[in-house]
């Protein structure tokens, strides 16, 4: 298993290099002058040129890229006119927009995205696995039909529709819930939860459909396997079969998918965040791309890519742990 993980790690580093180079190349082609955007609308040509020099945009692109890689490995010092600002490794540079350190910009927003992801994930796992199991066990009945229909509706609805309808109903019409704004957990846990409830539910409803389908098909497949039939023949009760034996066979793919989704979540639930106006990583991403804020975008792509690749590896390991027939080579 160690050899497997090491090889995965090497592949991971390569993929991340490829990703960052790709983003660099892509943004080099983008119209819009980062120096002018960074300087603001009132700058004259001379000021823009000095900003361009400060940002290192006069260097050839490969040199800029190399400088960027150095920053991640060793950190940088930036002179801001009067004082020297240290940006420790991993340093993704300074935002073109407001000279803030990109690392800070992202870490400020991670709690928002993290809060959204964690809460939503708890709901969607409970809802998705529960629905999937119920519809697998009540196969052929009315319950299964209703659940299948609901699941199908869930897969067909983008999160901004669910979010809009929930807000219309619970915030505008019934006035049971506040219009979501982010309140940090450390400030007021109760308000944190109240404000995030709708985003959680909206995201969870959309995501749980996928889990329900997967749990159902995986459970049905396991129930049809030989060893389950043997247990039945030996008189093991239905409850014991489902609870002890079938679940063990049916859950590995669900666990693997959760690990993957957890990884992608760090890139921000872009649509959910912009729908509810939550200042998370996803919102930062959309803004930075629109403003050609290259350092922020590259950093976000790398951070997301990193979590996705780690989650992929984690999913494989979890799969092997949960399903002993799988051997990692």
């Amino acid at each position: 298993m160690t050899g497997h993980l090491l090889r995965r790690l090497a592949g991971m580093v390569l993929v991340l290099f490829a990703l960052s180079a790709l983003v660099y190349a892509l943004f080099y082609l983008m119209p819009g002058d980062p120096a002018r955007l960074a300087c603001g609308p009132r700058c004259n040509t001379i000021q823009v040129e000095s900003v361009r020099g400060q940002l290192g945009l006069n260097d050839p692109v490969p040199a800029q890229y190399w400088h960027f890689l150095q920053g991640i490995a060793a950190g940088h010092d930036y002179s801001t006119g009067t004082s020297v600002q240290h940006c420790g490794a991993p340093c993704f540079g300074l935002s073109y927009q407001n000279d803030q350190q990109v690392t800070d910009l992202i870490t400020q927003r991670l709690p928002v995205t993290g809060s959204l992801a964690l809460g939503a994930m708890v709901i969607w796992l409970l809802l998705g696995i529960g629905t999937g199991l119920l519809s697998a066990l009540r196969r052929g009945g009315l319950t299964e039909r209703v659940l299948t229909l609901l699941t199908l509706a869930g897969t067909a609805t983008p999160v901004f529709i669910v979010g809009l309808l929930l807000m219309m109903l619970f915030c505008a019409h019934l006035r049971w819930l506040p219009f979501p704004t982010y309140v940090p957990f450390t400030e007021d846990p109760e308000q944190w939860a109240w404000n995030l409830l709708l985003p959680w539910v909206a995201l969870a409803l959309v995501e749980s459909a996928k889990y329900a389908r997967l749990t159902r098909s995986s459970m049905l497949e396991t129930l049809a396997e030989d060893h389950i039939r043997t247990f039945r023949a030996h008189g093991v009760g239905e409850r014991g079969i489902v609870g002890r034996h079938a679940l063990r066979g049916a859950l590995p793919p669900v666990i693997a998918l959760s690990a993957l989704d957890f990884g992608t979540m760090f890139g921000g639930a872009v649509l959910t965040e912009s729908m509810f106006g939550l200042p998370g990583v996803g919102q930062l991403l959309v803004r930075s791309v629109k403003a050609v804020d290259l350092p922020v975008v590259v950093a976000l792509v790398l951070v997301t890519g990193f979590f996705v690749v780690v989650a992929n590896a984690l999913a494989d390991v979890l799969y092997a742990v949960a399903d002993r027939r799988v051997v990692l080579t």
Binding site: L19, L26, V270, V289, G305
Partner: peptide, 18 residues
């Protein structure tokens, strides 16, 4: 594999701006 690992939305937004 690289295409599957790409954060699609980021690239879509970026490409649409290019």
């Amino acid at each position: 594999d690289v295409m599957l690992a790409l954060p699609h939305l980021v690239f879509a937004i970026a490409l649409l701006a290019v």
